[in-house]
Simulated assay, not measured.
Amino acid sequence: MPFFEARMGLLLDVDGPIASPVTRTVPQPIIDYLLRLAGAGWPVVFNTGRSDAFIREQLLNPMMASGIPDGVRFHAICEKGASWFSFDADGAGEVHVDKELALPSSFGDDVRDLVEEKYSALMFFDETKRAMVSVEQSLDVSSADYLAGQAEFDADAFDILVSYDMGGIRLGRERPDSNGEVGYRIDPTIISTDIESVRLGKDLGAERALALLAPYGEVPNTWRTVGDSRTDYAMADYLHGKGYDVAHVDVRPSDGVPEKPYPILIEEGLVNEEAGAAFLAGCVAVLAK
């Protein structure tokens, strides 16, 4: 499979490949590459655990400031498939939320209280999530300090989850609910912890992406998915299972590269948003040929 083709669909995780995990912002060159590619007719969909508010601030607003071409539409799948919206030169459309996948608001209140009482020196409660409950490393805290406290927070959050009798997963260990099914999980990343329905995931995001593109006749056969964690491979897994020609770009391969039935692409010597920028620059170079 060639690395680049004349027109491909891009399904992009945000934290890591696009937004720096250090600054939580998107470098301007990446904004410019995405606008060029979308303007050339490449479908661009963001598939992220982030909220719609984060996408507005870090992607929509900088893109509008730079100028979204007329007729270009971006799609954003947020909270791992729990919410989604589209945006163009006129701004954001309606945000849709799958309420069946949302945690009780009282559970979020209890986690917020936990953070304020015990972990405020390390992390903050994400007030922008509509369905999942998330905390995030404070910008002035080192990664080592945050990760050292994260495991204890995850254990405390799991105890709250148990008190709601909703079931859960913590670090690979499951607690079935009264029906013998697991309903929720605690999913730690290098800068955050998400507490979410087990139905959420990057595969659900990929499914929603195709549904968003279909009414506009924009679904190409060839795709590149881009991510920084092992869970991001679910995007390519889903597309491959549906018969699409797909390759996955891993911008943090040091976490371990699994064996897959599709190509895995790596930007040697680069990680996170630098690797994402290099990949996108290569895509833009195709437009000049």
Rank of each mutant, 00 (worst) to 15 (best):
Q137P: 01
Q137W: 02
Q137T: 03
Q137E: 03
S138C: 15
S138L: 14
L139H: 00
D140L: 00
D140H: 01
D140E: 06
D140S: 03
V141A: 00
V141T: 00
V141W: 01
S142W: 01
S143N: 10
S143D: 04
S143V: 09
A144W: 10
A144V: 15
A144E: 15
A144G: 13
D145V: 02
Y146T: 02
Y146W: 12
Y146N: 00
L147S: 04
L147E: 03
L147V: 08
L147P: 00
A148P: 01
A148I: 05
G149F: 04
G149T: 08
Q150Y: 01
Q150L: 13
A151P: 09
A151V: 15
E152Q: 07
E152V: 14
E152K: 06
F153Y: 04
D154K: 05
D154A: 15
D154R: 06
A155F: 11
A155T: 14
A155C: 14
D156P: 00
A157G: 06
A157S: 07
A157D: 03
F158L: 09
F158R: 00
D159N: 08
D159K: 09
D159Y: 08
D159E: 10
I160Y: 06
I160W: 05
I160A: 07
I160D: 02
L161N: 05
S163V: 07
S163T: 05
S163R: 10
S163L: 05
Y164T: 04
Y164P: 05
Y164V: 05
D165P: 07
D165N: 11
D165F: 08
M166W: 06
M166E: 05
M166H: 09
G167A: 11
G167F: 04
G168D: 02
I169C: 14
I169G: 04
R170K: 11
R170F: 02
R170I: 02
L171Y: 07
L171H: 08
L171K: 04
L171R: 03
G172W: 10
G172N: 09
G172M: 12
R173T: 10
R173S: 08
R173M: 08
E174A: 15
R175K: 12
R175H: 11
R175W: 08
R175S: 07
P176K: 06
P176A: 05
D177E: 08
D177N: 15
D177F: 11
D177C: 15
S178C: 13
N179V: 15
N179M: 12
N179I: 12
N179K: 11
N179P: 02
E181C: 12
E181K: 13
